[in-house]
Design a protein around this nucleic acid. Structure first.
Length: 427
RNA sequence: GUGCCUAUAGUUUAAUGGUAAAACUUCGCUCUGUGGCAGCGAUGUUGAGGGUUCGAUUCCCUCUAGGCACCCCA
């Protein structure tokens, strides 16, 4: 106790933007992951896990050197050798890498993959934004850019959110064109905005030079007004892109998936082309899931193969589920609590637990507590339906008491029969 | 990287220029083999450092951390 002060003073806290997911928060996380897996299973996406560390170059080459994610958010570790390793800021580039490196085209076309895990971006934490966050993502890589894949990724992402019982989903769609038509649009945008540079905000003047597409993303009053008259990407798309996008919309309409066209929707990463999408829910300005087609990503990494994918941020989902009061967790399983009294029973309880385990029964205990009172309290707090009371006398007699925690009714059964009786009563 | 706000038990919050209170949680006791209720008790050097002051948890400054917003993004 005297050292309390010292301990307190030197307490080590979690790094900025990171957080613990505590035991009482786990059930919801497990449930979300479970629903992600069920969605993936149904639509036939196979799980893939890639390392959390990748060569920094992977992201530099694929996400775009001028993107914020690369420019200032990537956490880079200098390895012992000359390697420059990065904590992955997103999940798609690693999958593209794994696809090429392992020759995953051999697994058949198309290859549908899903992943789940932590991502890292060094940014200022705020609502729905962390330095370590978790994503679930769906990706389809194939040897052609069939718009059906775009639709399938969007459907899977949408259904995932629906299965999480998140209401009022709003799917926004756009096409940002291909290598042929995007430059045309880019030029149109620059032409349009150059004459109006004076009325743009500081950020937008920078964007005009660096990444003109992002001009459409600005929420600044003056820029928003200018946006209205700006050239529309949808009018500029080449024939192929137009047809591709139309097909995607057609497919979504077939499954009655409501969408909104948003010609101002652009994405932050360079590898996107054609279809881009974001899914929102009412009352939050943050996208719950987002993604798009990336016809050039794998090519940039050395092998041509178009793909399309989307990812959802789990922290944001948890936040929405909590704030909307969605009840995802059903009734908990009935629990049995083993209570011991006395040293002999304590020892015997240990092997009894193993016996129950072998019979496939779940059992809770509090072997560290001695008094019956305290153990009953613990059983109650764990919301057990039944408890087993095992004392000195029962240990001698090879019997045990089964107590119904709600009614308080007790029956004494021979130890040999406890498994059968429990199974019957739990049914 | 920029701006604004905040910092008191594990949690949520009071209070005061004279070294802190409640509720909830946890643990224990009242009650040595029968829980949920109740009563009692335990668990804190008011984020760190400095300044003003006889005296600072309170006022001021710095730092740190957190929240929110911008940038950007899941």
């Amino acid at each position: 106790m005297a050292s309390n002060k010292k301990v307190k003073k030197s307490i080590i806290t979690v790094p900025k933007g990171m957080h613990d997911i505590l035991p009482d928060g786990q059930p919801l996380w497990e449930k979300i992951r479970k629903i992600a897996k069920e969605t993936a299973d149904f639509y036939n996406f196979s799980r893939i896990d890639t390392p959390i560390l990748e060569r920094a170059e992977l992201f530099e080459r694929s996400l775009g050197e001028t993107s914020d994610v690369i420019e200032k958010q990537m956490l880079v570790i200098r390895g012992k050798g000359r390697d420059s390793l990065a904590l992955r800021p997103e999940g798609t580039a690693p999958i593209a890498r794994a696809y090429i490196e392992n020759g995953l085209s051999r697994l058949g076309q198309p290859l549908k993959l899903y992943y789940e895990g932590p991502m890292f971006r060094h940014e200022q934490p705020q609502a729905g934004r962390f330095r370590q966050f978790h994503q679930v993502g769906f990706e389809i890589i194939s040897n052609d850019s069939d718009p059906i894949y775009d639709a399938q990724v969007i459907i899977a992402s949408y259904r995932f959110l629906q299965d999480l019982k998140i209401k009022d989903l709003n799917l926004q769609l756009n096409s940002i064109g291909c290598a042929k038509c995007r430059p045309v649009f880019r030029k149109k945008l620059i032409d349009y905005y150059s004459s109006k540079e004076k009325s743009l905000c500081g950020d937008c003047r920078r964007r005009l030079r660096l990444n003109p597409l992002r001009l459409l993303d600005c929420k600044n009053g003056g820029c928003v007004a200018l946006k209205k008259e700006s050239p529309s990407i949808l009018d500029t798309l080449c024939y192929d892109c137009k047809r591709h996008f139309k097909k995607v919309l057609e497919f979504l309409e077939e499954v009655k998936l409501p969408y909104t066209l948003n010609q101002f929707l652009v994405r932050g990463l360079d590898y996107y082309s054609k279809t881009v999408f974001e899914i929102f829910t009412e009352g939050s300005g943050l996208a719950l899931a987002a993604g798009g087609r990336y016809d050039y990503l794998l090519e940039m990494l050395g092998k041509y193969a178009p793909g399309v994918g989307g990812a959802a941020g789990l922290e944001r989902l948890v936040e929405v589920i909590k704030s909307k009061g969605v009840n995802l967790l059903g009734r908990p399983k009935p629990k049995v609590f083993l209570i011991h009294i006395g040293d002999l029973a304590k020892v015997k309880a240990l092997s009894l637990i193993e016996t129950l385990r072998e019979s496939g029964l779940d059992i809770l205990e509090s072997l560290g507590k001695e008094s019956l009172r305290a153990q009953l309290k613990a059983a109650d707090k764990a919301s057990s339906t039944l408890s087993l009371i095992f004392g000195q006398q029962e240990a001698f007699e090879q019997s045990i008491i089964i107590r119904d925690m709600k009614s308080g009714a007790q029956e004494t059964v021979p130890l040999k029969k406890v498994v059968d009786v429990l199974k019957r009563r739990l049914r």
